[in-house]
Design a protein around this nucleic acid. Structure first.
Length: 219
DNA sequence: AGCCAGGCCTGCC
DNA sequence: GGCAGGCATGGC
């Protein structure tokens, strides 16, 4: 198997045939994407949903409301998604950034080129590669391929050996796919969906659309 | 009971 | 620049 454009679109099509258009990211507003991206750091989405529900109860899904809310109150609300001490700090830092540098709307980053916008986000404490790229792709309209634990595991199992380096995986995929916003949005969504069902550490291959090309013994 | 979850930062080396 | 250790809750 060669890892060229044909390969990556082949994998996409296998996933698409099973799951279709995932309509990702699951959020009502761009800022909700930002919140979710922080809260889901090393945390299952199931837990994140509870936290976001709590924030919604108090109408806090807006940057200035996050900034002006009491830390201990916010910690209580986002408790279900864990790491609440650092995550409250991170939510406040990025909210402040949005207010001060983005005129209150994260989509301001659409005015910058992708590389510049990415750097701006990566300056922020608590925003690493995956969080930045998720925000660029799903809260804004930057076509960038998000890598996460699921993505690395899946690609490794279907034959790629890129040594678990985020930017190597990202470059490898992006050099071999059309830089298309909708494609990248749905590709990542499909990988997550398929991984949750079939491609976790403990594999469950029955019904997995990638079964033919997967070496389940990896990881 | 213990492992895992849609990372990231810090402090070592 | 690489890498263990810490961060915290909920599901299985």
């Amino acid at each position: 198997m060669r890892f060229n454009q044909e390969f990556f679109l082949y994998v996409y099509n296998l996933l698409f045939e099973k799951y279709g258009d995932m309509k990702w990211w699951p959020a009502e507003t761009p800022f909700e994407v930002v919140i979710g991206a922080i809260l889901t750091q090393n945390t299952s989405w199931n837990n994140v949903e509870k936290s976001i529900e709590n924030l919604k109860k108090f109408n806090l899904i807006e940057p200035h409301k996050i900034v002006s809310s009491d830390d201990s109150f916010l910690k209580e609300l986002i408790k279900p998604s864990g790491f609440f001490n650092q995550k409250v700090e991170r939510l406040k830092i990025i909210s402040k950034f949005i207010i001060e540098k983005c005129n209150g709307d994260i989509r301001y980053l659409n005015n910058l080129n992708t590389t510049t916008a990415r750097k701006e986000l990566l300056f922020l404490k608590g925003v690493g590669f995956e969080t930045a790229d998720s925000i660029l792709l799903y809260a804004c309209d930057h076509p960038i391929f998000v890598i996460d634990k699921y993505t690395m595991r899946m690609f490794k199992r279907i034959g790629l050996d890129w040594k678990e380096k985020y930017e190597i995986f990202q470059k490898g995929v992006m050099e071999n796919t059309p830089k298309d916003l909708q494609l990248y949005r749905n590709y990542h969504a499909l990988i997550v969906e398929n991984s949750k069902k079939h491609c976790k550490i403990k594999v469950d291959c029955s019904g997995c659309p990638l079964e033919k090309i997967c070496n389940k013994n990896i990881m």
